[in-house]
Design a protein around this nucleic acid. Structure first.
Length: 150
DNA sequence: GCCAACGTTGGC
DNA sequence: GCCAACGTTGGC
């Protein structure tokens, strides 16, 4: 492509996508159910830090689906932002929902233990701020977890 | 089921 | 605006 055309039509920035991690207690909403339903509204986030992350999500952003509480807490799959944040219709308080759609199951779940055991992931919010239910993931962390899941 | 970590609430 | 009390999350 000639240079002047490159200026007019710059390559889409690959790094503009954001990555996230959302947690769910499988007794409340499992990844298995997400897989069946294909799409779901993410409700029940009543924490300001988590809500702010929901608000920062853009359509098309990818997120890990993490199952907590039961069995071996692990990253089990990948979902995508289908609809950006909107007012939680069940309350007048300023909580928001985001719609996610199913993307894929990872080949091998990445357990919390493995994440904690990987030095490259020492800065991950999952390790440092364990209670945060919606958290950002860097591109490097994303790639590392993907590599571990294969 | 225990408990540590953390967020929120409310008295002062 | 501090901080104790309390509630919730989530690993173990």
């Amino acid at each position: 492509m000639p240079l002047d055309l490159l200026v007019i039509f710059p390559k889409p920035k690959i790094d503009c996508m954001n990555y996230w991690l959302i947690k769910s207690d499988p007794e409340t909403y499992s990844f298995e159910r997400m897989k069946k339903e294909k799409k779901t509204n993410w409700d029940g986030v009543h924490n300001y830090a988590a809500r702010n992350h929901l608000k920062a999500m853009k359509k098309g952003d990818l997120s890990f689906f993490y199952e907590s509480m039961n069995g071996e807490p692990s990253i089990v799959g990948i979902v995508k932002v289908a609809k950006e944040h909107y007012q939680d219709p069940t309350t007048t308080e300023s909580w928001v929902w985001v719609d996610f759609e199913y993307v894929e199951e990872v080949k091998k779940p990445v357990t919390l233990k493995e994440v904690k055991g990987n030095k490259k992931l020492a800065a991950m919010a999952l390790v440092r701020i364990s209670r945060l239910s919606v958290q950002p993931v860097t591109k490097e962390e994303w790639d590392e977890v993907i590599a571990m899941s294969k």
